[in-house]
Design a protein around this nucleic acid. Structure first.
Lengths: 222, 222
DNA sequence: GGCCAAATCACCCCTAACGGGTGATGCTTC
DNA sequence: GAAGCATCACCCGTTAGGGGTGATTTGGCC
């Protein structure tokens, strides 16, 4: 650590990118009003944002989605690829889920709507600074819905024994009886017996509905 | 709307539940200090919280996880089942993902860690009040990771034609050639041709690896 | 000790599905 | 007019699938 004059904090260094100068100015004055933040660069396009990030290695990049010459999502992707230590916060007016999800895939650590209170932006910046993730409350619901759908209550028991569930999983994954037998080091006859019992218990009679069942139970991914 | 005396706001009505009286008191004074919030009930157990919710129909219930006589997650489940219009915000010291995810499944609209700043709690309450979801920045990352894993970049194209991808999906779902032919109103021969071409292009030679491929591509869920 | 469910394996049957070919025809699109 | 896509036909041999029936062992439970 280099010694710093008394009273000077280790500020969080930001770059901001938005194609509207007025929005940028507004953000700068908003952010500079906080003692722990400082804006070290401004960009009007995605490419500029990327250059700025390379040049300044900021702690955090605040990017708009809609920008000429490379949009904010692509910029996010490239920044995260090249400079993973730079956190990206996407600040946009786009409430569509598609952008939100794409931002997450691109590696953004946060997504804030421009309609939000400025408090939320500051909260988000600090959350991200602390290694966290901030999601717009309006959009986080989609993510949660998605999660809940894919991970149903693990309770709601099925009538299968553990072994049967194991076999079921492998069947659903497309393995043949003999392959399953090999993987579990069992006789193929055993597998066939399990298979029959599974069909009996679940009252299913073909692989398709079996796969459906396994997918609903979330047996395929883990 | 019933007319209200000038200066009196429509306050957000809360109940809070925590097994430690001191924590409750602290929360009450914190929340009552805000002009737009009012605490209409306090509980020290999950069952009490449920009764309070039935009695007061609050806008929001602030629940701790660890409580005697029904924990906060079970209480969340029951409240959301009986009184879906009551939003639940889980406030806990538990940073384990398991509780977090279970809270989401139980229907909570937010999850705030006790280690967070009180600002975050207020932000969360207001976000939830506005129909949003607030997730602890420390834990939201898990949710995002989960999402990103399950929904890989849809780009990164595969060599398959749209029709082939369609057929592949159905194969992975466990349908037989004839069933697929029926569903797509095609000849079974056509399906077999597609199947062969898929095997060729992907250089796979059994259903198992085909399913693996489909899962990775996320073709199974939608 | 007796009972039951779970897990293991064997053997039979028969149909259908599977995978591997080869070849051919329209239809766009470039 | 070549290339890619989608469609269909027919042949072939293997084996996996779905359906039975019966048997053994293990472990837990009363």
């Amino acid at each position: 650590m280099t010694p710093s004059p008394a009273g000077v904090l280790e500020r969080t260094r930001l770059i901001i990118a938005d194609d509207h100068a007025i929005v940028r100015e507004g953000l700068v004055s908003l952010l500079e009003a906080e003692q722990d933040l400082t804006v070290v660069g401004q960009a009007g396009t995605g490419k500029e944002a990327l250059s700025l990030a390379r040049e300044h290695r900021p702690d955090l990049a605040l990017l708009d989605v809609t920008m000429p010459d490379m949009n904010g999502l692509e910029a996010t992707r490239q920044i995260k690829q090249e400079l993973p230590e730079v956190e990206v916060l996407v600040l946009t007016m786009h409430e569509e889920e598609a952008f939100f999800f794409e931002a997450l895939r691109a590696g953004a650590a946060g997504y804030v709507l421009k309609g939000a209170h400025s408090d939320e932006l500051l909260t988000a910046i600090r959350a991200v600074r602390g290694g966290g993730i901030h999601l717009s409350p309006n959009l986080a619901g989609e993510l949660v819905r998605d999660y809940v759908e894919r991970h149903p209550e693990p309770s709601m028991e099925d009538p299968l024994t553990p072994r049967e569930r194991e076999v079921l999983t492998l069947i659903a994954k497309g393995y043949s009886n003999s392959e399953i037998a090999e993987q579990l080091t069992l006789s193929i006859n055993t597998i066939k017996t399990h298979r029959s019992r599974i069909y009996d218990k679940l009252d299913l009679h073909d692989r398709a509905s079996l796969v459906g069942y396994a997918v609903r139970r979330g047996l395929l991914h883990p």
